[in-house]
Amino acid sequence: MNNKPVFFILTFVCLTSVRAESSFQSHETIYQAAREYIGQNLTASDEYEIDMVPLDSLLTLPACSKPLEAFTTGDLTKVKSGRVAVGVRCNSDKKWSIFISAIVKVYQKVAVLIQPVKRGDTITRGHFSIERREIAKFGDELITRAEQVENKQALRFLPAGTILTAKNIAEPKLVKKGDKIIISASQPGFSVRMNGLAMMDGAKGQIIRIKNQTSGRIVSATVVEPGMVSVNF
């Protein structure tokens, strides 16, 4: 009998504590709403990790009787990695809104050099591998497929471990200044070839200046293959 008052007091304290906790929104549900929103708005093909920056443990918000709504003022589809701010709000009778921060790490499979290359070197399949890497600080020019970089020329010295981008490489020069080349000119039912001299370097598809060695005229021609360019009448 002497223990009953103590039992009733402990029971009352526990029930009061449970009711107090249930009257406030748990921080984990706020984090979850933000995580789901970020994940839904990142580029679908990306792999990502989301780490929430913890809220102040003393922060209390009324429990929301409706599903939480997340929102942002930025464009999450452009997020490549880093800190983002996401709002979470309650639209029930006890309205509230709060911004929280998340650290987003976005990953892609990209071309990474496994051997160094010098300026002007032709990059072969043995120079690089496709690896999963975090793509922070990179734009939309990452190399994600082997055919985008294979047999291209390095524009500068690149050490092993470099994540390749379109700014690192260029189409190989098929024609170099001073090369003797064939100028091809054609139209339906007629074609002619002339000897020429390259006045500048050129990659496939590039328009360069060529000197016709017969007439001495300088013409503009499109590089077709090594040693050959084409002109239009």
Rank of each mutant, 00 (worst) to 15 (best):
L42P: 02
E141L: 07
K204D: 02
A185L: 13
Q115H: 13
R83W: 09
G161C: 11
A203T: 10
K109Q: 11
L55K: 05
D93W: 07
I218H: 12
T72G: 11
S129A: 06
L197E: 14
E225C: 08
E69D: 07
S230I: 14
R89P: 03
E141I: 01
T77R: 15
V84E: 10
M194K: 14
N195T: 12
V112G: 03
S26G: 08
P188D: 11
K94V: 08
K211M: 13
Q213A: 04
T214L: 12
S220L: 10
N91R: 08
F190N: 12
I183P: 05
F138P: 01
I169H: 03
S17Y: 14
I210N: 00
K94W: 04
F8M: 13
K173D: 12
I114R: 08
Q25E: 15
G189I: 09
I130E: 00
I130D: 00
F233Y: 11
G139N: 10
R125C: 06
I208E: 03
I103H: 12
R89D: 03
R156Q: 10
A85K: 14
Q148F: 04
N151V: 07
N2R: 15
I50N: 00
L113K: 02
I210V: 13
A146S: 14
T124S: 12
A160Y: 11
T16F: 15
V13E: 11
Q153M: 15
S57C: 08
C64Q: 00
M199R: 13
E21H: 09
I9Q: 15
V112S: 01
G120E: 09
Q115L: 09
L15F: 14
T43Y: 10
K80R: 15
Q187D: 12
